[in-house]
Design a protein around this nucleic acid. Structure first.
Length: 272
DNA sequence: ACTTGACCTGTTGGG
DNA sequence: ACTGCCAGGTCAAGC
């Protein structure tokens, strides 16, 4: 158990932000639990800081990078045009949200499942897939959790089995994409080293991955902060507030962070 | 190079 | 009780 005081870190908002689907309030309330990188982590507020139930070594090597704590998000917020009332409000509403460094394969699975769906259902579907095909592991209290299945494990599943988990027409997409990744086409690990546009193009070759999902994988799984996923909410936001186009030039290098703040603001408005 | 439907499914939500 | 529509899209078919 370690204690940290962190700038621009709000687990409640991160958990609700829709970038991750295995980050949920603890049943007893007051804290958050997440499953990622083959581990389980609980976060509980403690005065002006947070308690994390991990060792200092785990914090340094796993969770500090996972939460992207090396990146200065306050600088991104400060770079917002003060005359842009919409983005100023969005950033204030989403203050404390960071772009997690999630596993690219996990984000690929999650966002293939996300199409024409909603956050509660995506969460359920992803959990069902993990329970059915993922490797179980125990936390320090002996509770069992399930990792994201390997590409090979998902490729070996039948479409029928996947449909039985409630994935609908996404089942064949997921299965086929898993087979491609298992065969190293493309090799997800090597995408992280590519520039955003090359990585995006490679992801587009996957079945069930279109422009929007590829952008989500780039932003949330490959940490390409230039990626700017445009979904229905962001489409409406752009039409309403940026009729002359979003100022990508001004925000070059971190436009995706602002996309995430706008997305959060669209979903939760003034609340949370 | 566009535009248009079909596509699974729901601790659906609203009339 | 029922029907229609929507949810963080993608793909293939048709001009």
């Amino acid at each position: 158990m370690i204690r940290q005081q962190l700038a621009w870190f709000d687990p409640a908002r991160i958990g609700h932000s829709g970038q991750c689907f295995r980050f949920a309030p603890l049943p007893e309330g007051g804290g958050w639990g997440l499953t990622a990188r083959g581990r389980r982590l609980c976060i509980r507020p403690d005065g002006d800081g947070f308690l994390f139930d991990c060792t200092p070594e785990e914090w340094e090597t796993v969770w500090y990078p996972y939460f992207d704590l090396d990146t200065d998000y306050e600088a991104f917020a400060a770079a917002v045009n003060p005359r842009d009332a919409y983005m100023t409000a969005a950033v204030a509403c989403a203050a404390g949200v960071r772009i997690l460094r999630q596993d690219p394969w996990e984000t690929t699975v999650a966002f293939i499942l996300s199409q024409q769906s909603n956050i509660p259902r995506i969460t359920r579907n992803l959990e069902a897939v993990c329970r059915a095909y993922g490797a179980p592991f125990a936390d320090r209290e002996g509770n069992i959790w399930y990792d994201i299945p390997t590409p090979a494990a998902l490729a070996a599943a039948s479409e029928e089995e996947l449909r039985a988990l409630g994935l609908g027409y996404r089942a064949p997409y997921l299965r086929a994409a898993a087979a491609r990744i298992a065969a190293g086409q493309p090799d997800l690990a090597s995408l992280a080293a590519m520039p955003y546009k090359k990585a995006h193009a490679a992801l587009l070759t996957l079945p069930g991955v279109g422009v929007k999902v590829a952008d989500c994988v780039c932003l949330f799984g490959l940490h390409k902060l230039d990626a700017f996923p445009i979904d229905t909410h962001i489409r409406q936001m752009l039409d309403a507030h940026y009729k002359r186009g979003f100022p990508m030039r001004r925000y070059k290098g971190f436009a995706g962070v602002l996309q995430q703040y706008a997305f959060y603001y669209e979903l939760y408005g003034g609340k949370t």
